[in-house]
Every structure is written in structure tokens, then in C-alpha cells.
């Protein structure tokens, strides 16, 4: 059974078809990468899957429920979370608080007990903080626990977003260019983190321009160009696909 199934998905912005009649499936427990040149529609696809954009057409099935058009917070409840290509950190909060917001669904907070700071609220908050700390250590930004997020370096913020997404305990995690802007060492560390996340049974969808990383860790790759599917298959298959070579790899790396 597939975890995510996209059928004839389309999104048009004015005259531009950012995603056009796209269909694919993602199987549970895999690392699934989406590649394509700048403007191919990768981020738009993420926005459609996670409910940030409404599709112009087509269907999205997540765990066999039709989810196209649902708002992001409902999808999070169903087990989906993501990070962003352009950071969406809560810069008005500390690092650990950012991750604690990620656990929002599991705290299921109520207003009156929160106003009164009832013991049960305090206890659950302490547990939540401990869990958030573990996650920050897991992704490798444990050194910034109580740091003001606005003063953290870019690489640590990238990790912080992953920790926040993990705190919601997703079944499907979508990472939009997690290694962009990182140096080679940091990229390799992120690579390791992604593998460990997948190792825990979370299905990962990865958008990434770092071809070495993509070819190394993906079980399956989907190549897009102008919002359409260019090729699909294992890393070896996609690497040898002549369309991919001319449209994408050819342009940048040849």
C-alpha cells in the first residue's frame, strides 16, 4: 500500500503551470527524492501536498484518505510535516521553544489549565521540553538549546526546523533543500541525520540540489521539469535517463 498517492495534480499561477498533471506514489519506509532545475515546481509540489496551496486540479491521497484541499494543520494531525526552503523559524522564541511548538498536537493544550498553570500542565511541559532537547541533540543542534533562535547560525536553524518537524511525530516528512547553503561537512552530517530519521521508520521526501547526497541516500527519485514528470526510478535509472541528463544534470554539471 502506498503512503502518498498523487494523481493528475496541477497548480497554475496565472499563466504558469508550476505543477502540471503530475502523478506518482510514495511507498512507506523509503527515502524519495524530487529533483529538477530551478523553477521546476518542487517547492510548489510540497506546498500542494502539505496544504499550503490549493491544487488547481488532481487528487492527493494520504494513507488512503483524500486530502487535497485540507489545511496544513489537519494534515499535520494525519501525520505529515515538513521543513522549508526559506526558513520558517519562530524568531521570537528560543530554539527549544521552537521544537516544543512542534509537539503542539501531542500536548493538546487547553486554555483554562494553561492560564492557571495547573500542575498537570507544568508536568507535561517539562516532558515536552525534555523530548525537544533529545530531538535537538538527535539532529545535531543540541548546543543551542536555550539560544535565542534569532541569533543562531544558518546551519543550526536548518537542523532546528527538522527537529521541530520531527516533534510532531510525522509518518511522512518532507524536507525542502535541507542542505542548501551548508558546507560539505555540514551536508554530510545532514545526510546522516536523514538516514537516521528514515531508519526510525519515517518516510522521507527530499528536495535537494546536492546530487551526491540525492544519489547516495534515495530509494527512489522523481525528476521534474516545468512542473511535469521527466523521469522516475532508482538513482541508477534516473542518472542514466537521457532526458534528465540533458534537462538537468547536463545544464549544471557538464
Amino acid at each position: 500500500m502506498s503512503l502518498l498517492r498523487v494523481d493528475g495534480l496541477s497548480k497554475a499561477f496565472g499563466g504558469i503551470n508550476a505543477v502540471a498533471d503530475l502523478s506518482f506514489t510514495i511507498n512507506p519506509g523509503t527515502i524519495h527524492s524530487i529533483i529538477g532545475p530551478n523553477g521546476a515546481g518542487k517547492t510548489t509540489l510540497f506546498n500542494l501536498i502539505t496544504g499550503v496551496y490549493h491544487p488547481s486540479g488532481g487528487r492527493i491521497r494520504f494513507q488512503d484518505a483524500d486530502v487535497a484541499g485540507l489545511p496544513p494543520y489537519e494534515l499535520a494531525r494525519l501525520g505529515m510535516s515538513r521543513t522549508f526552503q526559506n526558513l520558517q523559524i519562530f524568531f521570537n522564541m528560543t530554539a527549544v521553544e521552537n521544537v516544543m511548538v512542534g509537539a503542539h498536537l501531542h500536548l493538546n493544550p487547553r486554555v483554562l489549565p494553561s492560564l492557571l498553570h495547573l500542575p498537570v500542565v507544568k508536568r507535561r511541559d517539562r516532558e515536552c521540553r525534555a523530548k525537544a532537547r533529545e530531538l535537538m541533540e538527535f539532529v545535531g543542534c543540541g548546543a543551542y538549546l536555550e539560544a535565542d533562535s534569532a541569533s543562531m547560525p544558518y546551519g543550526a536553524l536548518k537542523r532546528l526546523e527538522i527537529a521541530r518537524a520531527l516533534a510532531s511525530r510525522p509518518k511522512l516528512l518532507l524536507l525542502d533543500e535541507p542542505a542548501a547553503g551548508l558546507n560539505a561537512t555540514e551536508s554530510r552530517e545532514i545526510d546522516e541525520v536523514i538516514k537516521r530519521i528514515a531508519g526510525q521508520g519515517v518516510t522521507v521526501v527530499l528536495v535537494e540540489h546536492d546530487m551526491k547526497m540525492v544519489m547516495g541516500i534515495s530509494d527512489h527519485i522523481l525528476a521534474l521539469d516545468y512542473g511535469r514528470k521527466l523521469a522516475e526510478g532508482t538513482p541508477a535509472e534516473v542518472r542514466q535517463n537521457p532526458d534528465v541528463i540533458s534537462a538537468y544534470l547536463g545544464a549544471g554539471s557538464a
Binding site: T50, A76, Q88, F90, R164
Partner: peptide, 14 residues
């Protein structure tokens, strides 16, 4: 506070 920090960031974690 998360709503202030980033609405979309808050929404995608529920």
C-alpha cells in the same frame, strides 16, 4: 507566539 513568528511554520506542525 508561533502565529507571530511564522503562520505557515506553525500550521505545518498542527
Amino acid at each position: 507566539r508561533a502565529v507571530h513568528g511564522s503562520e505557515v511554520g506553525a500550521a505545518v506542525v498542527g
